[in-house]
Write a protein that binds this DNA or RNA. Sequence first.
DNA 1: GTATCAAACGCAACAGTGTTGCATTTGATA
DNA 2: TATCAAATGCAACACTGTTGCGTTTGATAC
Lengths: 148, 148
Amino acid sequence: MIDTIPDAYADLAYSIHAVGARATPARMRALGALRHADQPLSHADIEAELSAEKLPLIDRVTLYRVLEWLTEVGLAHKVVDFHGVFRFSANTPDAKHTQHAHFRCTDCGRVTCLDEPVPELPHLPRGFRLARVELDIQGECADCVASH
Amino acid sequence: MIDTIPDAYADLAYSIHAVGARATPARMRALGALRHADQPLSHADIEAELSAEKLPLIDRVTLYRVLEWLTEVGLAHKVVDFHGVFRFSANTPDAKHTQHAHFRCTDCGRVTCLDEPVPELPHLPRGFRLARVELDIQGECADCVASH
DNA sequence: GTATCAAACGCAACAGTGTTGCATTTGATA
DNA sequence: TATCAAATGCAACACTGTTGCGTTTGATAC
C-alpha cells in the first residue's frame, strides 16, 4: 500500500522531521501502519503488517524502540489491552485523544472507539494532578451477540 | 498474620465453601492476602506476601490458577495495570465493584480507588452488550506532586 | 559529491509474566 | 477410612518486552 503511494512517504517523513528527528524507514513504516489502522495495533500486529510489505524486515527490537519513541514524541498513543499487551495508535494532529473511550469485545477482542467523550470526571483528591483518562468498557460487540 | 488468627481461616473457608468449592490452603491464603491488601496485588506481590508467611511455599502455577479461579467465581476482581501486569483485589461482598474508578500514579505506581462512581456511561452502539467498565485515570498523586 | 558522526539499527542474550500437560496428592463425602 | 474428582506441583514452554554492544546510516557541513 505505502510502497505504491510515494506521497504517503513524504507525509510520514514530514511528520517525523517536524519533531526534529531522522526519518528512517522503520519509523516511517511503523507510523504508516498505525495511520492506516482503524484500531490500536499491538507490536505483533504491526510486525505482521510490515512483513506483508515486500520490503526488508524490520528487527523486532527496532520496532519496539520505534513504537516507544513514537509515543514519547507524541506521534503515537500507547494503551494496555485486557490481555496486558501494549497497543499503539497514531495520534491525529488535532487529537483530543487524551480523553476518550474504548469498547473491547471480550469475545472477538475487537476495539471500538466510542465517539462520545467521557461525560465528566470523578473528583480527584486534593493535590492530585491529572495526566490522562482511559475509559475501558468491556462486553460483547453486536456481531458476537448476534452470532450466539 | 493469618496464621495467628484462626478465625480468619474460618472466614476464608466459609467464603470458598459458599461458592461450592474445596477450601484448600492455596485458595485460602491467596484470598487472605487479597483481603488484607489495600490495593490490587500482582501475582508477584502475592507470591512475596505468601512466602513471608512461615508456611509451605505455594507453587507459582498453582497461584496463577488460584487467582484465575477466584476471579471466575467472583471472589476476586482482575485488572491490568499500566505495565500490562494483571492485578487482583478481593471482591467485597456488597461490591458494586464492577463499575468504579482507579487513579494510578505514573510516578510511584500506587493505585487509589476513587469513591465516586463513574458518573454516566457513554452510549453504546446498537446491539452491544455491556459487561464491565473500568475508568483508569493517570497522573501524579499528591505525595509525588509534593516531592518535586 | 563525500566525509563526518551522533543517532538509529540489527543481533544476541536475557528477564518477567503467564500457560500447558501430566503425574501425584488431597479435601470432602460416603 | 476408602474413594475419587478436584486441586496441586513440577517441568517445559510461549510470548512480550528489555539491555548491551558493535555496525550502519541519515542529515549536515565541507
